[in-house]
């Protein structure tokens, strides 16, 4: 993984307070909308996302996470389309054998706009939605509770396993494991690193299964939760608006 992992930023803004299901609906609609929308609407969407991020107080976090994701995508688009999509053959810039074509660059830029909306919507969702509350709200809407468990447990396990991977790396290097050298050696090094990681994970799985079983993971029947989530009129309005927006865009495309 490169850089800081993206994470939930605890706060109490209007965006944070939206019901998680509302945010799921908005997220899906934003992403669909980005692909469907004409350029002016896309620009409006980007502005709305940026506004929401600053309203939620996560503008900086979203920005910091978005740059390392978007820059390689943008560079890739510019190279793959800007240099090689000739279109009508209007050159924008020519340096030696390399020519930047106008049509390719336009395509790259507009596609980059779509991807930016995708990434911003995703990051805004992640930074303002408490994973546990998301799980609770989806369970209330009929998603099986065990799927919710898997989701939150996966998120929580990553840092734990990552720390272990770091310790394993230290321990094996201390025993002379060389992580440079030929590709074959490197793949063998991966075996020495990943095997203890998996075995350790399986040992802890056994403990965790027992602990969960004893604490009632497989009890059938009604459950309660520490968190009570309320749906406000704003939630309903936003859900309806988002769905109508996507329907309108689809209709516009079809006409």
């Amino acid at each position: 993984m490169n850089g800081e992992p993206v994470a939930y930023h605890p706060d109490d803004s209007v965006v944070h307070r939206l019901h998680p299901v509302t945010k799921v609906v908005l997220l899906v609609c934003c992403i669909l909308g980005a692909y469907l929308a004409p350029v002016p609407v896309l620009l409006a969407l980007l502005a709305a996302l940026a506004g929401a991020a600053s309203l939620a107080g996560v503008g900086r976090a979203v920005g910091r996470a978005a740059v390392p994701i978007l820059v390689p995508l943008g560079v890739g688009l510019l190279v793959i389309h800007g240099l090689f999509t000739k279109g009508a053959g209007v050159a924008l810039l020519a340096v030696g054998p390399v020519t930047l074509w106008r049509e390719g660059v336009l395509y790259a830029v507009s596609f980059f706009g779509v991807l930016t909306a995708f990434v911003l919507a995703g990051l805004l969702f992640v930074t303002t939605t408490h994973p546990k509350k998301l799980m609770v709200s989806l369970t209330e809407k009929g998603v099986p509770r065990k799927l919710g468990y898997v989701f939150v447990a996966s998120l929580q396990l990553v840092p734990d396993l990552q720390r272990r991977a770091g310790r394993i790396l230290d321990a094996q290097r201390s025993r002379g494991l060389d992580t440079s050298g030929s590709p074959r050696n490197r793949i063998l090094a991966l075996v020495a690193l990943l095997t203890p990681l998996l075995i350790g994970a399986l040992i802890s799985t056994r403990t965790r299964s027992l602990a969960l079983e004893a604490r009632g993971f497989s009890i059938e029947g009604p459950r309660s939760s520490l968190y009570s989530l309320v749906e406000s009129p704003l939630d309903h309005a936003l859900r309806v608006a988002a769905v109508l927006g996507v329907v309108a865009l689809v209709a516009w495309r079809l006409v």
């Binding site: 898997v150 990552q162 399986l202």
Partner: peptide
């Protein structure tokens, strides 16, 4: 149900280990 999160986390962390090697 306990193994699934392990598999998920392993996939994510394997990418990190490969990054080192």
């Amino acid at each position: 149900w306990v193994l699934i999160p392990m598999g998920v986390a392993l996939s994510v962390v394997a990418a990190y280990v490969v990054n080192v090697v």
